[in-house]
């Protein structure tokens, strides 16, 4: 499988505390993210996979001073996400994110999807209407909600809410979509829906996904990165990582010997 590289992590070392001299949370991680494909981050709790994901849209910057060393480059523009000169707002406008627990705003379904456009200062109603419809269709939610766009988002089921959050992120046409364990709060049927949706979305969007669920990583991803204690242990095509891991730690993890 040959794909262009959409984003590239280069020697990323990250600590929550600027003054910290101890072991960093991420230790010199390098990783390519291929365009229009799904890359899964797996590993035991505390391995740094969510921390890595949250570096991609600078969410850590919200909680005080943190230390990034290394780069995350978006291609083809060569835009360095972690650069000090880059405003986190700009990063977040380019990189969308969906969280563990569905977090729709207590507004209408329409307002939720339109939110990202409105905060970018877009006011043209016809454009927003089209975008809302388009994003809801992409998120596979249009058929269920087209007749009640003005209803409150909190009336939707958990799985629908999560698809709404995906639609909300899609509306702003992100260059990269981050999914942080998007199904961990959902029931099996909703989970299957989301996985199916991820498979559909990768035709148009580049996706980086953290997951706890190895089956999900195996089923839904094209590439898999295994992390352990802040190190990237192994990266490869998912078929290879799951059937024929090169590293012993990877093998132990996917065969359930720890984690």
């Amino acid at each position: 499988m040959v794909k262009n590289i959409k984003a590239e992590v280069k020697n990323l070392t990250f600590s929550y505390d600027k003054a910290s001299t101890g072991r960093p949370v991420l230790n010199s991680v390098s990783l390519p993210v291929h365009e229009k494909s799904v890359t899964a981050l797996i590993g035991p709790s505390g391995c740094g996979k969510t921390t890595l994901l949250r570096c991609f849209n600078r969410m850590h910057d919200l909680y005080g001073s943190v230390k990034y060393e290394g780069k995350i480059i978006l291609q083809p523009s060569g835009f360095d996400i972690l650069s000090n000169e880059v405003d986190p707002l700009e990063v977040r406008m380019k990189v969308g994110m969906v969280f563990q627990k569905p977090n729709p705003f207590p507004k209408t379904i329409y307002e939720n999807v339109a939110y990202g456009l409105k905060i970018r200062g877009i006011k043209k109603k016809s454009y927003i209407d089209d975008k809302v419809e388009d994003s809801l269709k992409k998120a596979g939610l249009w058929k269920e909600v087209s007749d009640r766009l003005k209803a409150s988002a909190s009336a939707l089921s958990g799985g629908q809410q999560q698809r709404l959050c995906i639609a909300r992120a899609l509306a702003t046409e992100p260059e990269l979509l981050l999914l942080d364990e998007p199904t961990s709060a959902l029931d099996p049927i909703s989970t299957a829906h989301i996985e199916e949706l991820v498979g559909e979305l990768k035709k148009t969007v580049t996706i980086l996904m953290v997951t706890h669920n190895l089956h999900q990583a195996g089923r839904a991803s094209d590439f898999t990165a295994f992390m352990y204690l802040g190190d990237l242990i192994e990266f490869g095509e998912s078929s290879q990582v799951f059937t024929n891991p090169k590293e012993e730690k990877t093998e132990n993890y996917i065969t359930g010997r720890f984690g």
Partner: peptide
């Protein structure tokens, strides 16, 4: 107000 809602908004690039 749950922090996740703030994160949801900020992650979209909101100020």
């Amino acid at each position: 107000v749950p922090q996740q809602l703030r994160e949801g908004s900020l992650a979209l690039g909101a100020s």
